[in-house]
């Protein structure tokens, strides 16, 4: 069994069999992570570059750890802002890195489309670690893994993504992946945070968190960008919390069985109350562990896939 593509640019158009394969492979690596010696020699001799043009702590650490667990050689490249402003163009940077003979590039960039562009200018296998507001496929995969781990299935589940959908790269990857796996996906947030034409994606839109919660099996709660959104997309953090925040009271009133996910980092008292965050902390922290397993699975499947 191998993946149908040499790259992981997003979850749009990724076939069900591929997602299934990644999720199943991750189970094996999840076990590896519980062993006293958490390292396997699978990618020995492979060189992977982590090309991070945007600040990221969790995703980069998670990828780096996954690479080390697989015994790959890794190098990190971090930069922020426009490549031109720093003197060397993005293309030149990539060409230089490629000249060092690398096998894979894991890329995070604030401009959508960069991973696709990388496939055009590089021979390395490309993994998208988040591009603009476009996609963040490994986050989508690890969310699916976490749901499946907890509930036992994805098919037929009602999953609602809550928060700033417009500016999220996690939302689209979740929507595409979950829909492929047979889940019903909805989104919930203030109307200023719902992007154009959301219904065209086959996604139900809620502006009422109580209703969304009552009708969902899983809530995937996104982080609110405090510094950017308050006063612009929402009047205040306080109003957001009052109308959209996930609180224990709301859960008890609407759906005590609802599963809460959060891709982190958490703003306690904003999108989620401390009480709920702590109550769900096992699931949320488990997501982080699962993230390493999922990234190991993706790296392994792409890294050992022979070029066709």
């Amino acid at each position: 069994m191998s993946l149908s593509s040499n790259h992981l640019l997003g979850l749009k158009d990724v076939p069900k069999e591929d997602i299934q394969l990644i999720l199943d492979t991750a189970i094996t690596f999840r076990e590896v992570l519980e062993r006293p010696i958490k390292k396997v020699p699978t990618l020995q001799g492979k060189t992977i570059v982590n090309l991070f043009y945007e600040n990221s702590t969790r995703t980069r650490l998670s990828f780096e750890l996954a690479q080390k667990r697989l015994s790959a050689d890794t190098i990190n490249f971090s930069k922020s802002g426009s490549s031109a402003a720093k003197g060397e163009s993005f293309k030149d940077t990539v060409k230089n890195i490629e000249a060092m003979k690398v096998d894979m590039i894991v890329c995070r960039h604030e401009s959508a489309g960069i991973p696709k562009y990388l496939t055009q200018i590089s021979n390395a296998k490309i993994i998208n670690a988040g591009d603009g507001r476009h996609e963040h496929p490994t986050q989508g995969l690890l969310d699916m893994y976490s749901i499946r781990e907890k509930v036992g299935k994805l098919e037929g589940l009602n999953v609602c993504i809550v928060g700033d959908i417009s500016h999220s790269r996690v939302a689209l990857s979740n929507i595409y992946g979950l829909q492929t796996m047979g889940a019903n996906v909805s989104v919930c947030g203030p109307s200023t945070m719902i992007p154009w034409g959301m219904e065209d994606f086959g996604v139900k839109v809620y502006n009422n968190i109580d209703k969304a919660m009552a009708e969902s099996d899983v809530l995937n709660v996104l982080r609110i960008q405090l510094e950017r959104d308050a006063g612009v997309l929402i009047p205040s953090v306080r109003e957001y919390h009052n109308y959209f925040g996930i609180t224990q009271e709301r859960i008890e009133k609407n759906n005590p069985n609802v599963l809460i996910l959060h891709p982190g980092p958490i703003n306690r008292g904003v999108e989620i109350s401390s009480e709920v965050a702590d109550g769900s902390s096992q699931v949320i922290l488990n997501q982080v562990t699962n993230g390493v397993a999922i990234r190991m699975a993706v790296l392994y499947l792409l890294g050992t896939k022979s070029e066709e």
Binding site: K12, A112, G113, D131, G132, R133, H134, E135, R169, L172, P195, W196, G197, M198, D200, F201
Partner: peptide
């Protein structure tokens, strides 16, 4: 342009 395409591509619109 702002449309379903910009939503899909994740580009500011």
């Amino acid at each position: 342009n702002e449309s379903v395409v910009s939503t899909e591509l994740g580009l500011p619109s």
